[in-house]
Computed example of a mutant assay.
Amino acid sequence: MQRASFEYHSAFLMNLHHFLLDVSVSNKSLQELPWDNKPAEAEFAILKDAVDFYLADYAKRDPLFDATMQGIKRGLSVDDQRRDATGLAIPAPLIAVLNRVAPVYARCIWASQNKSNQDWIKQTKQLDASYGKEIQARIEKYMVHAFPVKPIRSDIVVLTGTRQGAYTDEQIIMPSGRPDYQGLAALEMLYHEASHTTVTDTLVAAINDRMKAAHRQGESDLWHVLQFYTVGKVTQDVLKQSANLDYQPYALKNGLYQKAWPEYLDLIDQVWEPYLEGQLNFKDAITQAVDQMPAEKK
């Protein structure tokens, strides 16, 4: 097994973009933010103009699925120290906004935001070094798919401007500033997000094939439910068996199944947990899971 590797970044421009996105989406008061150095009146005016710019457009878009937001993320994936957006492959009006607000962000809050990111990276690297190899091996076993060979770019920002927190395509955007992403949960969420790259491909394909064979149509959250449960259970088991650490998986601790997927709880207990315990093979588990899953979303 080749170890998954993570290319961590606390990049100034990527963080500035997500700072403005989060403030605009969450409708936070600029005056009440935890500034390192409180902005002067003229600086608050610059910040307000930048937030208004985001409110008019980017705050209405999905950072993960919207093509414009995907392009901005790729365009901002540059050297961590870069503070001038001139010449980047992002919209020209955004370049102007970022360049105008960058000195204010740098003076007033970047130091503490960068520290938050660096602290998160440090603790997560240590956890990964201790437990990541076994967590990866078990996820690959249950998902029947390997992690990417090349390093996964992982951009750490304080907040992502999304309700769910982290988001991932081939690149991870991870929040260092959320309490629910700290401590041992950081390790689970690192591998949860990493498994969004390609690791769930076999799972998704198997579910789709069974749905087609069973003449079931529509979209299903089944793959995401099983991914969440698998990564959480693997992390819990590895921490207990390797270091006698008690850990409650993220989705259980935060009531995610009850809030978003209560209709899948019986399926997890009756099908997927037996699969993880070796009582079912992958094909049979997928067949039973699809056959027992609730009605598709229309």
Score class of each variant (00 low, 15 high):
L127T: 01
D128R: 08
S130R: 14
S130G: 05
Y131P: 02
G132Q: 09
G132V: 10
K133W: 11
K133R: 14
I135W: 03
Q136N: 01
A137L: 08
R138I: 09
R138G: 03
I139E: 03
E140P: 03
K141S: 03
K141P: 01
K141N: 01
K141M: 10
Y142I: 13
Y142E: 10
V144F: 10
A146F: 00
A146G: 08
F147N: 04
F147G: 02
P148M: 15
P148N: 14
V149D: 14
V149E: 15
V149A: 15
K150V: 11
K150Y: 09
P151R: 07
I152W: 04
I152V: 14
I152T: 10
R153P: 15
R153Q: 13
R153D: 12
D155S: 12
D155Y: 11
I156L: 03
I156S: 00
I156H: 07
I156E: 03
V157L: 09
V158G: 06
V158C: 12
V158N: 13
V158I: 05
T160S: 11
G161M: 06
G161A: 09
G161L: 00
G161N: 08
T162S: 14
R163N: 10
Q164G: 11
G165A: 01
G165N: 02
A166Y: 05
A166I: 02
Y167M: 08
Y167K: 11
Y167E: 06
T168I: 05
T168M: 05
D169E: 14
D169S: 14
D169C: 10
E170F: 11
E170L: 11
E170K: 12
E170Y: 11
E170P: 01
Q171W: 11
I172G: 07
I172Q: 08
I172E: 01
I172C: 06
I173L: 10
I173A: 08
I173S: 08
I173T: 13
M174Y: 14
M174N: 13
P175Q: 03
P179H: 14
P179I: 12
D180Y: 12
D180N: 15
Y181L: 05
Y181H: 12
G183L: 02
L184A: 14
L184Y: 14
A186W: 02
A186F: 06
L187G: 02
L187C: 03
E188M: 03
E188W: 04
M189R: 12
L190H: 07
L190E: 08
L190W: 02
L190Q: 09
Y191S: 00
H192D: 06
H192K: 01
E193C: 04
H196N: 00
T197A: 00
T197S: 09
T200N: 04
T200E: 02
T200S: 05
T200Q: 08
D201W: 02
D201N: 13
T202F: 10
T202C: 13
T202L: 07
T202I: 10
L203C: 00
L203T: 05
